[in-house]
Write a protein that binds this DNA or RNA. Structure first.
Lengths: 338, 338
DNA sequence: GAAAGCTGTGAAAACGCTTGCACTAGTATT
DNA sequence: AATACTAGTGCAAGCGTTTTCACAGCTTTC
């Protein structure tokens, strides 16, 4: 049988309220009593029951994670686990636990959100991907339940979010290429309904126009997806066009390492080299291929960390908190594996 | 203000006990009453408070994960996230939540275990790596707290565990190589204090001896680690030896994909090819390199799934449950990326 | 020297649920 | 006809905390 606060109270010869106050270090208890009670707590090896505490406090001191992502992505892209460790680091420091649930379907994500909210087993939720018209976001807003989102959502009012400055990242990547003398630079984007896709394109566009270079429609591939296949496909189209007289680009800015790998694969297949390729995420797999290329490290760990920080700030009702954080990116040169 | 069981009782004109029994579908309540109460539950959109329930039941319906692993490994090896999703799949089906905490240091792992146990916020724990003399295991055993372990621990009595048949895996991998005509086969092992290392070596040894091939001391590297560096290092030693007259192996069995990549890297550097290499884990990164090789898929998802199954069986006091599961491995041929 | 103000503590009511036990009304048993 | 079941329900005591309010005993104030 586990020791309870009553046992401590009895042994120490005080009431349970006193013990409770000692635990929370209330100023209303005399040092003398505190010392005595603490000694008993030590002796009996007493530890408060977190659940009883939660019930009395109406707060579980737990936050829930919703990984609304396909298994495939989860496994290939270390982004998620990195963000999760970031979350864990912040929550641990602040006395919160973290709960997670994985569900493949989008419907499943909503189910989990509903469960989390209705059962009151978490104090707040972190969404790991923001989709357009995300049903989870709508649901959480409607229920006035604290949550934060990794990745800027469509509607930012009333939501806490963290993200990179994606515009800045591609701006810089593109600018760097231009500084190295590249003029004909292609761009591969992500799905149109992700804000991140638009931002990355805009950054590229800005850098190009600032320097007076044209955005060649034949070299910009928007509304794509973050896959290797898409990367290969675009590259093959570029190559085909070049056979019909178009000039090959000297550099390609992509929106994801997978895309970049696809591009490299197609280049290899067609025996083309000397095109600089850039990606996003600094995925370790990018280390295991033969071309050197540039990747944008998004600092996933920090994204998780700040998502937790925002959320916990909100839960604890702190005032004057920021509504979002922009986490800086670093541009890394990935050396070839061999 | 949230709806409670009392509100439902009042509206339905019954006592709270009756509502509670309707929720748990007790046979002692008449169908008539059940119907009426359920209708009210629906109308009021009532959902039981999980925490109050936990307190009354003395069970949080939550299990805790302890990821006692370095961040680097966590990120590079999708094993962990795969196992986590496996755990989540089983627990969701059975009405359990999962809590996780990440902590870099080994000391931290123990802290988390202590917190989980003392605060009673989880009903059981899954350890994601079994080390020799694992302090967490000792602590959990001493406190008689339910837990299961991924990876067979040193002392199996009184512990629930899941693992692959590592002996069988390397036996088969080695045997396959022999069937293809290889006779001179090197072996790279993992850290001596991991059971997995010993098992994998024994499988290799058995296959070799069954076929009457010698185990060449110069070609077996035990007590290594699961890194690329170790792989490269061993391969370079093999190559150096060959320059002094030793015969090169025609195949190399390694204990990890990272090791295998290291081997391939060294081969490439020294311009050697035509040596078959095998690894473990079917890591996606293995897809992004140029040699085809063989990897053993350990079915991490299933390992997590069964770890959860064993644990929940124990928590719920089921009788005649197995003490461990052996999850089959599949041998996969990884095609070169390009 | 009475009123007012502190200080330190305890009693008891929450928090929202489960469950052992008791009770009532029928029904079956002898 | 008395007894013994059974089915269906409610009462109230938990589960282990926190926290409001009350109060006793001091000290200060005018």
């Amino acid at each position: 049988m586990k020791i309870t606060i009553n046992d401590v109270a009895k042994v120490a010869g005080v009431s349970t309220s006193t013990v409770s106050r000692v635990i929370s270090d209330s100023p209303r208890i005399s040092e003398e009593t505190k010392r005595r009670v603490r000694k008993v707590i030590e002796e009996l090896n007493y530890h408060p029951n977190a659940i009883a505490r939660s019930l009395a406090n109406k707060s579980s001191k737990t936050i829930g994670l919703i990984l609304n992502t396909e298994a495939e992505t989860l496994v290939r892209n270390p982004f998620f686990i990195q963000a999760m460790t970031g979350v864990s680091q912040y929550t641990q420091k602040n006395g919160y636990n973290v709960m997670f649930a994985y569900n493949k379907s989008e419907a499943g994500d909503l189910d989990i959100a509903v469960w989390y909210v209705n059962s009151r087993c978490v104090d707040g939720i972190i969404l790991f991907t923001s989709r357009t018209n995300d049903k989870c976001i709508d649901f959480l807003k409607k229920n006035d339940f604290p949550f934060s989102v990794i990745g800027r959502p469509d509607q930012t009012e009333g939501v806490l979010w963290v993200d990179n400055d994606n515009f800045q990242a591609t701006y810089q990547v593109t600018n760097d290429l231009i500084m190295k003398g590249h003029q004909r630079i292609a761009f591969l984007g992500g799905p149109r309904d992700h804000n991140v896709s638009r931002d990355r394109f805009e950054g590229y566009k800005k850098a190009m126009t600032v320097h007076g270079y044209a955005i060649d429609k034949e070299l910009t591939f928007l509304d794509g997806n973050f896959s290797e296949e898409f990367g290969s496909e675009c590259m093959l189209r570029i190559i085909t066009a070049s056979k019909k007289g178009a000039e090959l680009p000297t550099a390609i800015v992509t929106s994801d390492d997978m895309q970049a790998l696809g591009v490299l694969k197609a280049m290899r297949k067609k025996n083309i080299s000397n095109i600089a390729v850039t990606g996003f995420n600094n995925t370790p797999i990018s280390l295991y291929q033969n071309e050197s290329f540039t990747s944008v490290d998004v600092n996933a760990n920090k994204l998780g960390f700040y998502a937790a920080k925002l959320l916990i700030g909100k839960i604890e009702g702190k005032k004057n908190l920021p509504t979002h954080y922009i986490v800086p990116t670093n541009i890394v040169e990935v050396e070839p594996f061999y």
